[in-house]
Amino acid sequence: MTAIPHRSSQGRIGRALVGHGQVLVVLGAIIALFIGVSFVNARFLSPANLTTIFSGNAYIAVAAIGMTMVIITGHIDVSVGALIGVLATVAGTLAVAGWPMWLVWLAPLVIGVAVNAAAGWLVAYAHIPSIVLTLGLLSILKGGLIVVTGGEWITDLPPGFFLAQRDVFGLPLPLVVMTVLTLAAAWWMAHFRFGRTIYAVGSNLEAARAIGISVERTTVGVFALHGLFAGISAVLFATQLTTIQSTVPPNLELVIITACVIGGVSILGGVGTVIGAALATIFFATITSAMIFTNVSAYWLRAVIGGLILITVLADVARRRGQA
């Protein structure tokens, strides 16, 4: 395999945060939707609905943090949805088996890190393109989960298991986890050495090598971190409802990747922030909810969502042209 060519022209680490423009577009779109729809039905802004939008989709935003890092380094992972399904099933199985709760919640994190560190190792040292590796991993995890569990639902979960149903400081725990992790990750990526290394590797591989960064170690590290976030996401996903389906959530990887790219992560690496990805997750959740509140014909729902995504993408283009 040859080295990954990078066509992105931003060489300097300081320029790594230029994804902010798209963040503003998405934020603007969310605010516009909130204001617009609240005129149709004021309940759209009620705490209950905000909980559904923010907390009910927090597991997507948490997984998007790790995915953002992976994409920034110039890679992609299409297996994350399957991994989350597997890790949720692991958590549920251990809980039913009577393991101590802290171990039940910790196990998905550890396994997530282990699986993705191995994936990262294969990408970095065995030079398998990440899309090929994760396509393969997607098949393995998806099929493997059914082979192992037979798709039997996990229903007899102990009462202490439901972490995502708890409140912290009067707020739903998933919302708090999402907010804290997103802000912490954004801050860490901007101010800490390893965080900035991620941007450096993504924006210019050769330059990163030249200043002594181990591209391989960074790749493994980023995949491992991504596994950690997938594990946290899986715990939120598993503990939200009374049953666990033991199957791979349909199209979850696509939702996560879409959130990252619409949030302003360039797929060519080197650009983007986790805040954008979290906002994009909220943006999709807001649209889905708004469609119901505004009585858009359910048959046209997906067309409207697709159209809105398209408009957001093109709005960013228009904005950049206006600046140029």
Binding site: T51, Q245, P249, T288, I292, N295, A298
Partner: peptide, 23 residues
């Protein structure tokens, strides 16, 4: 009142039902 789609996805079904309850 209306019909909403939620695939065969339990969290999406949960979110859609919550949205209906609030609406």
């Amino acid at each position: 009142l209306e019909t909403v789609e939620a695939q065969e996805d339990n969290i999406l079904s949960f979110n859609q039902a919550n949205t209906l309850l609030t609406k």
